[in-house]
Design a protein around this nucleic acid. Structure first.
Lengths: 218, 218
DNA sequence: CGAGGGGTCAACCGATCGGTTGACCCTCGT
DNA sequence: ACGAGGGTCAACCGATCGGTTGACCCCTCG
């Protein structure tokens, strides 16, 4: 594959994961790769953005699940959008989830690659180097989903429909949803009908269930 | 804290986590602890049970989320129940989730400790040594929840109620739930009423939402 | 043996939901 | 400028849900 080019400087990497144990594990693991240099670590999205700007790494290894504050997608958006002096770092997503919603959001946010934590470490090393050069790496299951997505564009819920869904998952009735969103009850029903269609269900309980599984809701 | 006792033999540890990257990270991390010896690694519950019997480690570090097959709780149950020649290993749970349902199930399954992946590595080392001696370690948030549980015994759903909930989350109506479980519609309503009470909601959509958040459903 | 918890069932009521059709008004992009 | 997509609203219907009360059975535990 990639011959060990001792002439090439190591990839400068920033690791972002909210689980300290996992982060420490990644650091220990990546320490064994000679051509990767971890220049910083972050436990929150805010930290990641700040450190990315300060350290100007080649690649940011980003988890999507970041506990309390901003999530990995938002952090990715900020980092890739930065028109700082140095070119914006490439963001390589490393996460547990491979749902359509997560993948789509990460790609839209500007992620260069999308790896699953179930991946083999060698793949991770390779993906980091690929990302440093702006090349995309996708874990097989992720690639499959992306392809399937291209072929049969899955129903995408609109922002408004997500609003409805959020209220629905609170257990509100149509009347209360209408009040919460300052629209009429009739409109709520219309939206719900479309949501049912898109999610392939025909009851509100089913809609909430699918929504939670697809991670469409926070 | 713990003085390096060169006289004590290292703790023999089996690591079980379905995410290869995380597992490799843990191995690399634990390799830096002189008095811990990783004697095996498993990616599934089945593997963990087999290796625990074969290797007879002092401690099994167990993730609850194990992808496809059996989950960590079941694996824990098997391992702690083994009346093998050697004494059953102590199981130390290391996971992301700190919901009441997960904690309760793990403890009931015989786990010796319950750590979160957000914990600091030193805590992990200490907890492994504690577990080797049968002493319990709980992450602070977990300990809090356990205490709260003792004070105000949270509503625990019965098995039957979980059955109802499972059907409910499929979006079934009362009639279909009744048919699926071979009971009358009236009974379904009765159960639903109690479920609402216990979960603090008053609609089916709300019940599904809370259930998914509390991880009461697979 | 009595009490209590879990599971089952019935009948009733009003309120809500699910589904449908048709319509209007925006704001995009070709 | 026109169409398409997204958002809003209305009126109607039958079916279902949510809540209540009361009851019976079985098992376990003290």
């Amino acid at each position: 594959m990639t011959p060990p080019t001792s002439a090439t400087p190591p990839v400068r990497l920033l690791v972002c994961d909210d689980h300290i144990v996992v982060r420490a594990g990644l650091l220990a693991l990546l320490g064994s790769a000679p051509d990767i240099e971890v220049v910083g670590e972050a436990g929150t999205g805010e930290e990641a953005i700040a450190l990315a700007a300060k350290l100007a790494p080649d690649v940011v290894l980003m988890d999507l699940q970041l506990g309390e504050g901003m999530d990995g997608v938002e952090a990715t958006r900020h980092i890739t959008a930065s028109q700082a002096p140095a070119p914006a770092p490439h963001v390589l997503v490393l996460t547990t989830y491979d749902t359509d919603a997560d993948i789509t959001r990460a790609i839209e946010a500007g992620a260069t690659g999308y790896l699953l934590k179930a991946e083999r470490p060698e793949e991770l090393f390779a993906a980091i180097h690929a990302a440093a050069q702006g090349r995309t790496t996708l874990s097989p299951p992720v690639a499959s989903r992306v392809m399937a997505r291209m072929r049969k564009p899955l129903p995408t819920l609109t922002d408004r429909e997500l609003d409805i869904l959020a209220q629905l998952s609170r257990g509100l009735g149509n009347r209360d949803i209408a009040r919460a969103l300052f629209i009429s009850e009739a409109t709520v029903k219309t939206h719900l009908g479309r949501i049912y269609d898109k999610l392939g269900v025909d009851t509100r309980a089913g809609a909430v269930s699918v929504a939670k599984e697809q991670r469409l809701l926070p």
